[in-house]
Write a protein that binds this DNA or RNA. Structure first.
Lengths: 341, 341
DNA sequence: GTTAGCACTCTTTTATAATGAGTGCTAAAC
DNA sequence: GTTTAGCACTCATTATAAAAGAGTGCTAAC
């Protein structure tokens, strides 16, 4: 059996109607609301075919049809008409980034808020991950208390990391300045890999006096590096999800929440994609049981061809695909632009 | 009417039973499970009195009794027996802080996780707020790209703030080092208030050359200061709440979530307290409609008598008070200790 | 190929009765 | 005077049955 033009129209109608109403849609509704110029009986025949093709299914004998994951997939790939952002939306976005703090955390938060507000689904935004290729721009040691100092490390990506460390009691700020100077001279411009392998011994030689201290500092820098690879993920608009009829069932909400509270899982999901650019994973296409009746629309943002992180929207499979895809795509572009600065 | 000994015992029994079962508790249950040595009829009489006193109420004529907010209050104030931490719990806490990163963000996260895990309710932990009295320990400017530099500010509280700023194209790292040096000399040890008022002009004189640049930098520092007063709040264990029977109703979950997604509100609630130390706000005692059938147990943590922030647990009014209060109290003490270092 | 007509299926709604937990009151027992 | 057994009463919950409604699939006619 092949998809003819009318089948496509019927499938599109079913999906659009179901997206709107969340109710199984019957032949009569199609024939009345979507002027295909044929009677319910004809629609019924087409529906039977579409069901055989796996695009729609029946919850029970006497109910209308509901799109299957495969049906949505077909819709997204072939039927859906891309949507333009409305002027209102354009403006909302514009005003959200104009004249505001450029601090990375805030940009992430704001992006997440916008995503969930505009789509009415849950948004996930991953903060830029520092790759191992990130290199050190500046290192600074600051004396805090008799036995404590702070190591501050600025990376070329604009990320700033810091860590308190214990130091010997007799160390002064002047000492630390000295160490800072040496570290900067030796390390700045290098990435973590290189530091680990080649530079350490060199520093040791030159810095015999501070050797123990250096040990601690470097180890911590490394640990920090490790730790920071657990990217923070901003989650927003959970509330929106509860307004979706599919989540009126507490069990659903529970399985969803149990997932969203595990940041590690989220990361995997958010990064589980083959290509750059936009990705739509419908229902079981997510390799994750807990969201097997959700759709995730994700996109990556990058700097100089290096993927920094990704943003996404999570909603029921019954999602306003055209709208959401447009929005996610647009927001990812914006992040690209912002990162470029 | 006065509370005699038996009334107290009956009230305690009702509350304990209700906390366990979440079902209205009847006279027979009390008489059987809690060996008060009297018949159901007698209990009924006492219950009628307790109801008149406002400590318990009846959902409907033929149901058992349910504690009122006032009843819980009486229980917490007079009846409840404080609980000890179990060795298991002690150990769990111990191992969570031992040998782990001392970075402030992680401590906050970990504390939140512990709180929700141990109590099975939702936890809220506020990161230390920098008060206006926080003073500058160190300022560092780092050149990033042709027209950008990063301002890094270390406060004596251990907080590190940073911000990218635009600079003139001809400025070099050497210039920035110079500026850093001056800024450090002038500003370190001072708090924001003092800087604002008296020091600026002084700097201007000395730094004529970099004046425009300084303008930007200082303004941003100040903006940063403002912005940072929106404390981050760690929220955890939302999932736990859905296991509580009172949240099997989606509407309840919605009102709760709508609150929890507004960080500003959370801050107010978390800080709305008269005294230091532990605070228990039961039901309507929270000045917040959205959690009028929840109880919040909060405590502050401080450094040198200055309140840095607060931690809390949010659950249904039917909360395991003895346990939760012990845990919150203990965790606050731990944070105090950690901050002291 | 299309469609009107109709019997059939299965969920949802509505109505009605049965069950049961728990109370308040009264009068007797302690 | 306090306690308790006994009992009628209330009201939510559960069970049962019937009715309504939505939608289909099939057949036969157009």
């Amino acid at each position: 059996m092949k998809m003819n033009d009318r089948k496509k129209k019927v499938l599109a109608a079913i999906i659009q109607d179901y997206i709107q109403t969340a109710e199984p849609v019957g032949s009569r509704t199609i024939s009345r609301k979507y002027k295909l110029g044929v009677s319910p009986a004809t629609i019924r025949n087409e529906m039977a075919d579409l069901e055989e093709l796996g695009f729609i299914e029946q919850p029970h004998t006497s109910a209308g049809r509901v799109p299957s994951d495969i049906g949505y997939r077909y819709y997204v790939d072939y039927l859906m008409e891309p949507e333009q952002l409305t002027p209102d939306q354009e403006e909302l976005i514009e005003s959200s980034y104009k004249d505001k703090s450029q601090e990375i955390g805030r940009i992430i938060t704001r992006t997440g808020q916008l995503l969930s507000r505009m789509t009415n689904y849950t948004s996930m935004v991953m903060a830029p991950r520092r790759e191992k290729t990130a290199s050190i721009k500046h290192i600074q040691l600051v004396h805090m208390m008799p036995t404590q100092a702070m190591v501050i490390m600025v990376l070329d990506t604009g990320v700033v990391q810091h860590q308190l460390i214990e130091v010997a009691e007799n160390i002064t700020q002047a000492d630390l300045e000295q160490v800072s100077k040496v570290l900067n001279a030796k390390l700045s411009g290098l990435n973590m890999e290189r530091i680990k392998l080649t530079i350490l011994s060199e520093i040791y030689l030159e810095m015999a006096k501070y050797r123990t201290f250096m040990d601690v500092a470097l180890e911590l820098l490394h640990e920090q590096q490790e730790a920071a690879s657990e990217e923070k993920i901003y989650l927003g608009g959970l509330y929106n999800m509860l307004n979706q009829p599919e989540f009126h069932n507490i069990e659903k909400v529970k399985t969803l929440l149990s997932l969203l509270e595990q940041e590690k899982m989220l990361q995997e999901i958010l990064l589980d994609k083959k290509h750059d650019g936009i990705s739509v994973r419908i229902g079981v296409e997510n390799n994750c049981d807990q969201i097997k009746d959700c759709t995730m629309v994700t996109a990556t943002y990058q700097l100089d061809d290096q993927v920094l992180g990704s943003i996404g929207v999570l909603g029921p499979t019954r999602m306003e695909y055209a709208k959401v895809i447009t929005i996610v795509d647009h927001m990812a572009r914006i992040l690209n632009k912002v990162m470029d600065k």
